[in-house]
Design a protein around this nucleic acid. Structure first.
Length: 278
DNA sequence: AGGCAGGTTCTTA
DNA sequence: TAAGAACCTGCC
């Protein structure tokens, strides 16, 4: 189907934003996206026009929500005051097109535990191996095989050798196993966490083995769509150090601290790659 | 070849 | 309560 989107929507920026690890750029410029039991190919075909290889029905059932199309990111950007916050204004203009996807909470828990101390390509490799090992094989619209993200019990059933070998989790394998066992037994209930306010949900996530502040915040922002959550990693520390000497005012950026973080994070990485830092 | 990376845990004071 | 070491692994 052909879709018109007038709000911010940039596939390559979303793909590179560090929130999703199962987007694959194809040779024809489209992206293959795996989400739940589904696989989607999407390609930009005009200024505001996109081609999706799914039915109208599948789009309104699944992908509309996944891309968070009910949220107006241009409006969220418009709240930024370029007089008092020139750096965020610059970053949001440069990185316009990023959205916060509504991804599966369980997938986000495991993905961000795996993400610690690693680069994006390495995270993608590990997740792909994990899905290949314990997800369900399915065939996509183009006849290619893809693997769904494994449910807790399936990950819990994997051995140390499988988690450290093909999945290359290293010392993180214990974290992944522990959380998977808890989720499989019901001791960890993500729906229940989702019903809690931000600070309580954060506290519960941080009680999990292998989940510290940064990972908990990523899960809140990308898994539970808590748009006011501000994950702070080395890139954000650099932003604060170099551009917010007198302090970063979270109150001023509420309730969209998480969205603004995405602009600042992406801009920091992109300009440092441009200037050959890193 | 040794340091470092998008982080957390565990140990020690 | 806070600082420091250890941890997988790949890359420079």
């Amino acid at each position: 189907m052909i879709l018109n989107i007038s709000d911010d929507f940039d596939l390559s920026r979303i793909a590179g934003s560090g929130q999703c690890f199962r987007w694959q750029r194809q040779s024809d410029e489209s992206y293959r996206i795996i989400h739940g039991q589904e696989c989607l190919y999407i390609r930009q075909t005009g200024a505001e026009q996109y081609e999706l290889d799914c039915s109208e029905d599948a789009f309104s059932r699944i992908w509309h929500a996944y891309f968070d199309l009910d949220t107006r990111y241009a409006q969220i950007r418009a709240r930024i005051d370029s007089m008092t916050d020139p750096y965020l204004a610059e970053a949001s203009e440069a990185e316009k097109g990023i959205r916060i996807l509504r991804q599966d909470p369980w997938e986000m828990v495991i993905s961000f535990i795996i993400s610690q101390n690693r680069s994006i390509p390495m995270i993608c490799q590990s997740i792909e191996a994990l899905c290949r090992l314990s997800g369900d094989a399915r065939q996509d619209q183009r006849g290619c095989l893809f693997y769904t993200f494994p449910v807790p019990a399936r990950i819990a059933a994997l051995s140390e050798a499988e988690l450290t070998g093909p999945c290359r989790l290293g010392y993180r394998w214990r974290y992944v196993q522990s959380v998977s066992r808890m989720a499989a037994s019901g001791e960890l209930n993500l729906k229940e966490i989702d019903s809690q306010p931000d600070d309580e949900a954060r506290r519960l996530l941080m009680s999990l083995y292998g989940v510290g502040e940064k990972v908990a915040d990523c899960i809140l922002l990308f898994g539970f769509h808590r748009l006011n959550t501000l994950p702070v990693d080395v890139w954000m520390k650099r932003v604060f150090r170099e551009h917010y000497i007198s302090g970063y005012d979270v109150t001023k950026h509420s309730p969209y601290n998480g969205v603004y973080q995405q602009y600042l994070f992406a801009h920091s990485r992109n300009s440092s790659i441009l200037h050959g830092k890193s």
